[in-house]
Design a protein around this nucleic acid. Sequence first.
DNA 1: CCTACCGATCGGTAGG
DNA 2: CCTACCGATCGGTAGG
Lengths: 189, 189
Amino acid sequence: MTRNTKDDVVAAAGRLFAERGYHGTSMRDLGKELGLLGSSLYSHVDGKQQLLVEVVNRGAGFFQESADAALATVGSAADRLEALIDGHIGIVLDHRSEVRTYLNEADALDPELRASVIAARDRYEEAFRTVLKEGAADGSFRSDVDAPINAIFILSILNAVDRWYREQGRIDRDQLVGDIFEFVSDGVS
Amino acid sequence: MTRNTKDDVVAAAGRLFAERGYHGTSMRDLGKELGLLGSSLYSHVDGKQQLLVEVVNRGAGFFQESADAALATVGSAADRLEALIDGHIGIVLDHRSEVRTYLNEADALDPELRASVIAARDRYEEAFRTVLKEGAADGSFRSDVDAPINAIFILSILNAVDRWYREQGRIDRDQLVGDIFEFVSDGVS
DNA sequence: CCTACCGATCGGTAGG
DNA sequence: CCTACCGATCGGTAGG
């Protein structure tokens, strides 16, 4: 029964925002989750909106770190694409609360902050576009591949993982990455 | 300035739930959208939760009708898959509010109703699994295709369309369907 | 569909 | 981190 740190508060906020949504979570709910009163949270943070900002920034940061690492992979564009997929799945499964909040609750942010989230997402998506373009040049992929559209398709699959995948299921994490990479590479045909 | 029907109320609720979320929408917000007071809504509906149920049921119904029609398509499994994709995109773009609410706000439903939504989604997904299995048999697709997983991947792409696609953009609706079908069939390679 | 209202809950503050 | 509290807003009701 030691005191909560600000990190504890942000982590708990992430859990509740992910589960019930930003508007579905009250400061009193969050206090209860931490074993204190809603009003006591204000010694850790300025307000509810700031908590959302911090959770969302954590989510964005995880993804960007992952992309930077994946782009540094030596090898073919296909290798870098697989690294991007592997990294993304790792982030989604290891930081579910922050990721869910980042993906689903950004609309609850004040307009300027929401705009910065959209910019961060675009920066991340750019890593996928880059790799697809490289692959069209180095022969990893079809030369006529539409990078912007295909980047969106790949990210659609990756982001949705959080909505259905359970680690206790019939496929493990590595298989999931392999299945996605295979689908993205060759489709169903 | 004629009176609102219950359909108007449900439609407006769908718009606000889609835009601000269920918990982010108050009965007074909804009243304002319709030009009346929040309390006046209770002559049309029992409560806020009922509105969510009706919006979500509309969304579910659109998708199921679309799947039933697509499965009746004569031709190869690939033809039926394309019909499923085409139908899905049509529903997403023609009924955005209901679809967004159906896809994103089902967690705000009471437990039994949420369970019935999950069941409806599974029934719909079954159409995709069926077509993939048929395609593995009739030679449309690879014979070793994992239908459950690939159905999820395809639906991930389809459901995400609502998050990024604007009809005013550089690709029109038919191109979008074609791009998705091509990606799903052959991937980026 | 409005008037007038209910008890409950909201985000947040002052002061310790 | 708690006590004690604020004004605003919430979903909803009674009666017309």
